Amino acid sequence: MEVRTIKVFTTVDNINLHTQVVDMSMTYGQQFGPTYLDGADVTKIKPHNSHEGKTFYVLPNDDTLRVEAFEYYHTTDPSFLGRYMSALNHTKKWKYPQVNGLTSIKWADNNCYLATALLTLQQIELKFNPPALQDAYYRARAGEAANFCALILAYCNKTVGELGDVRETMSYLFQHANLDSCKRVLNVVCKTCGQQQTTLKGVEAVMYMGTLSYEQFKKGVQIPCTCGKQATKYLVQQESPFVMMSAPPAQYELKHGTFTCASEYTGNYQCGHYKHITSKETLYCIDGALLTKSSEYKGPITDVFYKENSYTTTIK
């Protein structure tokens, strides 16, 4: 009895394709271990004539594949690729409408935090270190965002349907971005203890939790000093293409032309909904596939993004 075979390709990165001759009487799992086709788990399936010449994702289970996976995804987590594939199996079914010149995501599976993050990423200057993220990001900007969303979920250790947080998501993504040249110098002034300067680099240099107003941050924000008295913390120097200011959701007025974009969060910790506000020729609110415009805006804002380049204080 002759062994019926077909020729397929296996890959971990969709760049390096490895030619395989597979036995049609055995499952993919018996031949390769966990195997995925377009995100779908085909591990328990036997090869079919229609699979001839198709590319299958496999887990990096030998040295060659491990090197290829690390170079593309910059992670050695053995569960990463499987999590990416199972997320992709959902995100490829989502709709990605162009809204006001940006790629958004039609609401499904509690994905409003991903839509808000995706919209924000198209408006701030950011370059990702893992080629996987950078490639998928370019495709997302062009309207094909399924891979990018699935990668975000995998890097953030999230599953489809789980509630997510924009600030946490951005923080994970910033860790995989090139923020080497970003720098922030802060000064804390206390009447009792004097003053202390701190220099922050990388992710810490672009994120701040405690106030939404970048102007206020430049002037000074009140913080408790270690001595128990009130101290003032203010920005001395900022070198970065953008800054992200966050605070627990509270009524906040966004003035046209003073910011790049913002995240609105309605609801409580267990259950809520994100919308995205962007400042173009007027203010726009993007909620999944829905767009509304207004000249002014007041609502429960939790993150505001500002364009920056270089700032030095005039406070002496």
Results as ranks from 00 to 15, higher is better:
K275R: 15
V221W: 06
D287P: 03
E296G: 08
Q251R: 10
T211K: 03
S25P: 05
D135A: 11
G194D: 00
H51W: 07
T192R: 13
P97K: 08
R66V: 14
Y269N: 10
P97G: 02
S171Y: 15
S263D: 05
S263A: 02
E162G: 00
Q196Y: 12
V67L: 14
Q197S: 13
P249Q: 04
E68D: 08
V22W: 04
Y311H: 09
V22E: 09
E52D: 11
L88T: 00
N268T: 12
T260E: 08
T11V: 04
G33C: 04
E125W: 01
T313H: 14
G228M: 03
T278R: 04
Y72V: 07
A154I: 05
P241W: 05
M170S: 04
Q134T: 10
Q237G: 03
F217Q: 01
D287F: 04
Y57W: 11
F9D: 09
C156H: 03
T10Y: 13
L290M: 12
Y274D: 00
F9L: 11
Y72L: 09
E125R: 08
T278C: 09
L65Q: 11
P248F: 11
L126S: 04
Q197R: 11
S263Y: 01
S50C: 15
H176W: 14
R4M: 14
G299S: 05
K191F: 07
I301V: 06
S171R: 14
L200C: 11
P241R: 07
I45H: 11
K233A: 14
T199F: 05
Q195S: 15
A146P: 03
V166F: 08
Y57D: 07
T116P: 03
K127S: 14
G272A: 00
G53V: 08
F128T: 04
D41N: 13
D303F: 00
K93G: 10
R141F: 09
D165G: 04
V166N: 07
N157I: 03
P130A: 10
D41Q: 08
P241Y: 05
C285S: 07
E204L: 06
L186C: 10
D135I: 09
Y311F: 15
M207V: 06
L126G: 07
N147A: 11
L114R: 01
I152T: 12
L37F: 13
K233H: 10
D41A: 13
D41Y: 08
S104T: 15
N111Q: 05
E125K: 07
Y274R: 00
L81D: 07
C227R: 04
Y137N: 04
L290N: 15
Y269R: 14
A117V: 13
L200F: 10
N268I: 00
I15T: 12
E215H: 03
C225M: 02
K158A: 09
G82W: 11
Y214M: 08
W107K: 03
T313E: 08
D109E: 12
